Amino acid sequence: MSKWKLAVIGLGHMGKHMIHRLLPQFTDKIELVALCDNDEASLRREAEAAGGSAPALYTDYRLLLEEIPLDLVYIAVPPSLHYDVARIAFEKGIHVFCEKPLANSLAEAKRLLELAEQARVSHVIHFSLPLDPAVQKLQSLVQERAIGSIQRMELYLEFPQWPRAWQQNAWITSRHEGGYLLEVGIHWINMIQQVFGPITHVQSEVEFPADSKQCESTVKATMRLHHGVDIQVSGTDHREGEERVSLVVHGDEGTIALENWRHLFKGGKGEELQPVPAEAEESKLPILKQILRILDGEPGQVYDFYDGYNAQVVLEALRKPGEGFTDLRPLLQSK
């Protein structure tokens, strides 16, 4: 059986994670045939560390996509480059697995969605949070009305510093394509859309540093769901103590809290929150496993460029506030 031929473009944190942690789990299904990064020394170092058959090395993704026959490309470059890399891949009929956010603007995201549909190939965005066992358990508790009717929610995106210590690069703090709303908030936007339904209105207040090139410092916002439930968003890069990235869901009979990505708690009305086990018999993660199932013609669960676009609609409303609530319904796309 022949293997799927993959190229990884971009060797930052996520690109390295792909080649060193994820691909070794699927060596029977997929072959890394090419790597691309603009830092040639890093490119050669990471290729050597990856071992296995030597992939072709490129510092120009255009040349890679022109010269190397591919089935799938993993796009792990900064957001401002997503559009161009994906566009070329679609033109060549290559399946695309793209890091979040989908693009660097809503206009780019919409055009990528159009190109993806025209290409008739798989188009997947790297949203994994909804498939995490803790979120799957949260969703089942909500569906079972374990805390009754949902009344309100709070989303905390609070960091002692931005970027985090392990996340240093040239663009992560830029107002153009960085910031915690874009890097972290987008995951939670998509998860909320998958678990609770469309976010249809956004009201946002964003405080920026004096340096016009720097990303947001403080965010206070309200995201309103299609059935009228409000989600209060609190964001800061000056939190005292450890970071908190969490969603708290209040019902008329209790509360569920998903604390720091994957620690789930529940309590009845007036009761102290208690940990909730959230193990899965078989994890749906990593997303690459689902992609390979789909490429093999089997059922798989992924989030596509429709999901990426609809999350970007909310992201841009948060990052670029208007007067009062912005109605997102005219912009949201249905599959």
Rank of each mutant, 00 (worst) to 15 (best):
4 W>G: 00
12 G>S: 10
16 K>I: 06
16 K>F: 05
17 H>N: 15
19 I>V: 09
21 R>N: 14
27 T>Q: 15
29 K>E: 11
32 L>N: 12
35 L>H: 11
42 S>Q: 13
42 S>K: 13
49 A>I: 04
51 G>L: 08
53 S>H: 12
55 P>G: 15
57 L>Q: 06
60 D>C: 12
64 L>V: 07
67 E>A: 15
68 I>A: 14
69 P>V: 01
74 Y>D: 09
80 S>H: 15
83 Y>A: 11
84 D>H: 09
88 I>P: 14
88 I>M: 14
91 E>A: 08
92 K>I: 07
95 H>D: 02
97 F>C: 04
100 K>T: 02
110 K>Y: 05
112 L>D: 01
117 E>M: 13
125 I>N: 10
126 H>N: 15
128 S>A: 04
135 V>I: 01
141 L>D: 01
141 L>S: 02
141 L>C: 02
145 R>V: 05
148 G>R: 02
149 S>V: 10
151 Q>H: 06
152 R>Y: 12
156 Y>R: 08
158 E>N: 03
158 E>C: 04
159 F>Y: 12
160 P>E: 05
160 P>R: 04
166 W>D: 14
170 A>P: 14
176 H>N: 11
178 G>K: 01
183 E>T: 09
187 H>D: 07
187 H>I: 03
189 I>G: 00
192 I>E: 06
193 Q>N: 08
194 Q>F: 13
196 F>M: 07
202 V>I: 12
202 V>K: 11
204 S>E: 06
208 F>E: 12
209 P>V: 04
225 L>G: 04
230 D>E: 14
235 G>P: 02
236 T>L: 11
238 H>E: 08
241 G>I: 07
247 L>A: 10
251 G>L: 08
252 D>R: 07
255 T>N: 11
256 I>L: 14
259 E>H: 14
266 K>D: 00
267 G>C: 10
268 G>F: 01
272 E>M: 06
274 Q>V: 03
283 S>D: 01
285 L>S: 14
291 I>H: 05
293 R>A: 14
297 G>Q: 04
298 E>A: 10
300 G>P: 09
302 V>T: 04
320 K>L: 10
323 E>W: 09
324 G>H: 01
325 F>I: 06
326 T>K: 14
330 P>N: 15
335 K>D: 09
